[in-house]
Amino acid sequence: MSVTGETVTQEELGGAKTHTATSGVAHKAFENDVEALLQVRDFFNFLPLSNEDPSPIRQCSDPWDREVAGLDTVVPLETTAAYDIKAVISGVADDSEFFEIMPMYAKNIVVGFARMNGRTVGMVGNQPKVAAGCLDINASVKGARFVRFCDAFNIPIVTFVDVPGFLPGTNQEYGGIIRHGAKLLFAYAEATVPKITVITRKAYGGAYDVMSSKHLRGDTNYAWPTAEVAVMGAKGAVSIIFRGKDQAKNEAEYIEKFANPFPASKRGFVDDIIEPRATRKQICIDLDMLASKKLGNPWKKHANMPL
């Protein structure tokens, strides 16, 4: 580039790979125009005709009360082991179909469209396979934009939570992770569409709060038996509380007390603890119940989004 003196090719500066994987400007890239048009048709099939129409419903042959036995074992016994959140999303979706949005950008969060008993829903999930599912600047902005889009077009949002926290480091702090993370929190808090949340494993600290928690007006919030709702992981918490004394003993006690969904359930932060195999059935029941959801929010032009 003659202006800045950088040595860069046209493809590296503004090509498909750059804008789908690095900048996030483009949502998807395709091999040819035929594939692009077919994908756009699939995308439009998920959307209502206007922002005044409800989430579209089409005929579905996949039983709404189908049990998904594979979900009982999808979360590894080892809390630090990774698994694919897309397996959970596909498992509960009609005919296991999931239309992912921005698949190459901020892979630590997964967003896209699916159908539940024929009804279009927006799916959001932390991805434990990438950066342990931590939220960073790019993931927060990606998630916030998708949630806002769903809210604009009356599409219910289903959120799967497995988040150990916000990604630490000077790069994130200097980049404004607090401000950008607030965008995702704001998007969930202001969304008036039905919001259903399922905690599959880790739900730690502020990142748990951001992911459509009950504190952000989540309509129904559930936890699997493998869920851990706490300020932080046992190892980090014990090192602070007990300053390293009797580490193993105190860690085991902390896990028994807090590394499970029961304390959160007692306090009303989750509505129920459900078996993973019953997740699809429960979501379909809640979507029917929330189909007529109306909020009497105070009138205003708009709120002040943390841009």
Rank of each mutant, 00 (worst) to 15 (best):
N260T: 05
I155R: 02
S265H: 14
M211H: 09
I240W: 03
T79P: 09
M104Q: 15
T79N: 14
T226F: 00
Q247E: 11
L38I: 14
I101Y: 08
A303R: 13
A131H: 08
E253D: 13
F153E: 02
R243S: 14
F149V: 07
E100M: 14
V25L: 14
G233F: 00
V229L: 13
R179I: 08
E100C: 06
V124E: 03
A87H: 03
I241L: 06
E173T: 10
K17T: 15
M211Y: 04
K202V: 03
A93D: 13
D136R: 00
G24Y: 14
K202S: 02
T159H: 08
A227E: 07
Y83G: 01
I255L: 09
N45W: 05
D95K: 14
M116F: 15
A82Q: 04
A189M: 09
M305K: 08
Y204V: 00
G133F: 01
G176E: 04
A29V: 10
M211R: 01
L71I: 05
I85M: 13
G218E: 09
V270S: 10
R115Q: 12
R119G: 00
G236E: 14
E11L: 15
V158R: 00
T20A: 10
A93C: 06
N138G: 06
D42V: 11
G205T: 07
P103Y: 12
G233H: 00
F30R: 08
H302I: 12
P156Q: 08
A207G: 03
K202H: 11
K249R: 06
A223S: 15
V25Y: 13
G15M: 05
P103N: 06
A259W: 15
S292R: 06
T197R: 13
R201A: 02
G133A: 02
E12T: 06
A69G: 09
E12N: 10
Q127H: 11
E67L: 11
A264D: 09
Y83N: 00
K249M: 14
I57S: 05
I241C: 02
V141W: 01
A237Q: 12
V231A: 11
V158N: 01
L216Y: 09
G169Y: 03
E173D: 10
S23D: 07
T120A: 14
F160N: 02
V238Q: 05
A106D: 07
N126Y: 01
V193P: 03
L307E: 13
L290P: 07
